[in-house]
Write a protein that binds this DNA or RNA. Sequence first.
DNA 1: ATGTCC
Length: 473
Amino acid sequence: MDMTDIKPLDPYRWTITSTPKPVILYGNKALIEEMDEKVREQIVNVTKLPGLVGAAMTMPDAHWGYGFPIGGVAAFDPDEGGIISAGGVGFDISCGVRCLRTNVFINDVSGHLLQIVDALFNTVPAGVGSEGEIRLSMTEINKVMTGGAEWALRKGYGVREDLNYVEEKGCMADAEPDNVSDQAKKRQLGEMGTLGSGNHYLEVEVVEKIYDAEAARAFGISEGQIIIAIHCGSRGLGHQIGSDYLVALAKAAGRLGIHLPDRELACAPILSEEGQRYIGAMRAGINCALANRQIITHLTREAMSSIIPDIHIETLYDVSHNTCKQEKHRVDNKERELFVHRKGATRALPPGHMLLPERYKQTGQPVFIGGSMGTGSYLLAGNPVEQNQAFSSASHGAGRKMSRHQALKQWHGRQLIDELERQKIYIRSKTMRGVAEEAPGAYKDVDEVAEATEKGGLARRVAFLRPLACIKG
DNA sequence: ATGTCC
């Protein structure tokens, strides 16, 4: 990024001086300098949208996205003409991470990793257009969209206890399946319980290092323990909702005379008819993703217990990183009801927050920074609002630093898999191309991102997780 | 991200 007009507020928060409304870029100097120029352009565009409250922000893992940057956070006030944007949520609505805690340790699995990775790969469908065993009717898909993980539980996937540790207790209220096109629904009829492609994965990890012993105790983790992370979203349904509403919101913006600095920022006022329709459809997409991760949790339990019969797997936490949520935030000493877009950014609720399960009340919300294939991930905990100035948001991953196209030119999938296998990290994927696109070298340094996340006050590190086995789409 | 261009 060209550092002209970019000034540090402190070593981990930067502002762009030439914008009428504030921008805050989170990250150390190196991360900001290496960030694509497009990120600056896109976040400055976001400040020009009606009803923005406070600053438009980017997390330390930010990179170029559709309209909004991935790693972007922006809150809007409905009473000040605030908008909702499909590009501000992302095409993969409610893409997120379900983190599972097991009762087994590295010594219990190290001799079985090949069996484990094959069992997972054979049990959890992955890849573009992948379908599972589940076939739904158009009536049933409507129930998915209102029930979320609760629907999956009723169908026999998972245990009641899981839902305690899922955002919204597994069911997003006020979802409107009627606002979702038949085309979107049809795309999803065979895709429940599937991982998808791209950066989605299911990974077996070991707790390598504990940073915060007290929070680790609350999270129920200790060194050497096996953790499983499921990263996926709302598949074809969410994508189709995004595509449908991009058109609808662009029309609304035109009709209502909203100036769009970039047509990819198609949006409508939260209080407009189109805005309300998208919000209902997006919430239906959120439930689809929550149900999807609930089913995959069940499939993971099946696959893991076929290799390690005594394994017991609990949900540590499930949090989305592509959403727009209605939340109460205190701004300039006034409590306001805002719509917070988090695109490639996770919610990070502070200690004591009413929406947290009892188990995490003292520590704050578990936050998951999913690293690139083979490099490791971090568990963090949400900070008090005095420290987190980003509407209780934090980084969601390592963040790409190179395009997929560029990565393809630089790496071969097969070679990457062999190289990782030599490090005893086992990868299974439907496509070698996908693996090359996801090369660790195409991502930022996850250690740097996690450190910047902590030093920027967004969340504090609890544990580093080292990858053992990973299945990719 | 995505039935990777109906």
